[in-house]
């Protein structure tokens, strides 16, 4: 059974000019030990999906429909206090900026120990030993000496490791990581990603990895969900999606990544830009930029359809699509 199930999730933002639909009919699930990558352009709704799952949507945003289930139990309608407990114990969160997660006034040891004693049935002494173990695990040298240091005494890369240790130490079943490596340098990124991946594998932790960096996804994720204008446009195994994306948008996205191994005269590009939430067109939201658009795309909104090994929200994969549908 899936650990996390998101069913037809809809998030709305009431504004003075009417209600904006930030997430519309988003559905996916994650199995234990699985890493689901979520990619898309800024504003596509990938971070918001993460925020909705951990119950930290920024007001006035609110869940207006659908369900989020953790181990079969609904968590989208829990009171704040109950959700806070789940957030510490069962769901760990890692954000882009480690400074927002760590309390600058407490030593990292104290933060780790408190987290563990709150959520696990262990005493402070045992927790301290475990904390040192975690710090060593995430690759902090001389962990025993450094456990009583304050966050500002660590460099950016080390701080992000501490954040990861903090997210993992209560042994959650699910980790929501929102751009965990974006603030880091390339050479550090690689270290952190490798570590995250190993840890998730070892502990059987499910992970939702939100990032705009396809490279990170390709290295880490088992499956990928591509988001566009608040909806999932394609979801499937990472290999298939990177190599043979079915949805014209995912294909365009993959093609526009500059290759490292050769110089091309002209990069593939997707013309135009993603519509604003207030101006999402009728039918398929991608219809203004899609090179393979046809009449049905302007009228009806596509559901996720079977497209071979992946599922794509594209009418090309429905019966009766124009010739040459297999992209």
């Amino acid at each position: 059974m899936s650990l996390l199930q998101v069913k037809n999730l809809r998030v709305e933002f009431p504004t003075r000019r009417g209600t904006l639909v930030a997430l519309d009919d988003v559905s996916f699930d994650i199995a234990p030990g699985e890493v689901l990558g979520v990619v898309g352009e800024s504003g596509a709704g990938k971070s918001m999906t993460g925020a909705a799952i951990i119950g930290l949507l920024e007001p006035p945003g609110r869940i207006a429909g659908g369900q989020i289930l953790l181990e079969g139990k609904r968590i989208d309608n829990l009171p704040y206090e109950q959700m806070r407990r789940i957030r510490g114990r069962q769901i760990g969160a890692i954000f882009q900026d480690p400074l927002t997660t760590l309390n600058p006034l407490y030593t990292i040891g104290r933060q780790l120990i408190e987290t563990m004693t709150t959520h696990l049935p262990i005493g402070p002494g045992e927790a301290r030993e475990k904390a040192i173990g975690w710090l060593e695990h995430v690759g902090i040298p001389a962990a025993r000496e450094r456990i009583d240091s304050y966050p500002h005494e660590f460099s950016g890369g080390m701080r992000q490791r501490v954040v990861i240790a903090l997210a993992l130490c209560a042994e959650p079943k699910l980790i929501v990581a929102d751009e965990p490596t974006t603030a880091l340098d390339v050479s550090i990124q690689a270290q952190v990603i490798a570590m995250l991946k190993t840890l998730a594998r070892e502990k059987g932790t499910a992970m939702m990895l939100v990032t705009h960096d396809m490279g990170v996804i390709a290295e880490t994720a088992d499956r990928v969900a591509v988001m566009y204008a608040g909806r999932i446009s394609e979801i499937g195994p990472v290999r298939e999606l990177v190599r043979h994306a079915r949805h014209p948008y995912s294909k365009g996205l993959m093609d526009s990544i500059p290759p490292l191994d050769r110089r091309v005269e002209r990069l593939q590009q997707i013309d135009g830009s993603m519509p604003r939430l207030s101006a999402i067109p009728k039918g398929c939201p991608y219809n203004t930029r899609c090179p393979r658009v046809f009449d049905r795309c302007y009228v009806e909104r596509p559901e996720l359809l079977d497209a071979g090994t992946t599922r794509a929200a594209c009418w090309l994969y429905a019966e009766g699509a124009p010739q040459g549908a297999s992209v």
Partner: peptide, 10 residues
């Protein structure tokens, strides 16, 4: 974003 990056580089 990558797709826009390609536009600007081109």
């Amino acid at each position: 974003d990558v797709s826009v990056q390609a536009q600007i580089l081109n």
